[in-house]
């Protein structure tokens, strides 16, 4: 079921570094045609990653399984809200999984920013969609190329659900070191995005 890398509909500059299926087109088919095959492809790629994320965040196996299915059901129900000019599919699914984690693991409400209105049901500009996909790919490459010490701290900040001081406690590294490594990592990412 795992989709082989294939060029997306609007994608003319495939990098060879990162195989990239056009998930936005899959999501579009889920939205417009209730296409179960497109959903199954999204599921095969993202469900194991969402489950891995939840387990690394401290969820038990059964809870992670249950939450993953709920996250993927939300992906179906909210497919019409996806806007490829504002976020990539992996980013959008990450935010849904993150919110599920806050809800199910921390039992907290999640205040969300006020929606921005872009005018009456505007179709996203495909140039913006393409630019965003390219930026996301660049960022993924830059992240993969971070020195290991920096990358691990970034991963911990996102996956382990830890504040900087909790990372300090867990790793035994001084808080100042953690902050400066994360800052260095961000500088590298910014440099790569220029």
């Amino acid at each position: 079921m795992r989709g082989r890398p294939k060029p997306g509909a609007y994608d003319t500059t495939m990098t060879q570094t990162i195989p990239d299926t056009d998930w936005a087109a899959h999501l579009q088919r889920v939205h417009t045609h209730r296409d179960q095959n497109a959903f199954a492809a999204l599921f095969a790629h993202f469900a194991p990653r969402v489950k891995g994320f939840l387990i690394r965040s401290g969820a038990s196996e059964p809870l992670a399984e249950e939450c993953t299915q709920e996250v993927m059901a939300t992906v179906w129900h909210k497919a019409h809200l996806f806007d490829g000019s504002r976020a990539g599919v992996s980013t959008w699914i990450f935010t849904i999984a993150r919110n599920k984690r806050i809800d199910a693991l921390r039992k907290q409400r999640r205040p969300e920013p006020e929606e921005v209105t872009w005018g009456p049901e505007e179709e996203p500009d495909q140039t913006d969609v393409l630019a965003l996909q390219q930026d996301t790919r660049k960022l993924a490459i830059a992240l993969a190329q971070l020195p290991e010490k920096q990358r691990i701290l970034i991963e911990r900040a996102y996956f382990a659900d830890l504040s900087h001081s909790e990372i300090a406690e867990e790793t035994g590294l001084p808080l100042g070191t953690i902050k400066s490594r994360i800052r260095l990592a961000l500088e590298r990412l910014r440099h790569a995005m220029q």
Partner: peptide, 17 residues
């Protein structure tokens, strides 16, 4: 959030039921 998306995409996968 895009950093989070990239980490999700490249992160460890756990097999689902």
């Amino acid at each position: 959030e895009t950093v989070g998306g990239c980490l999700l995409d490249s992160g460890p996968a756990a097999s689902v039921a």
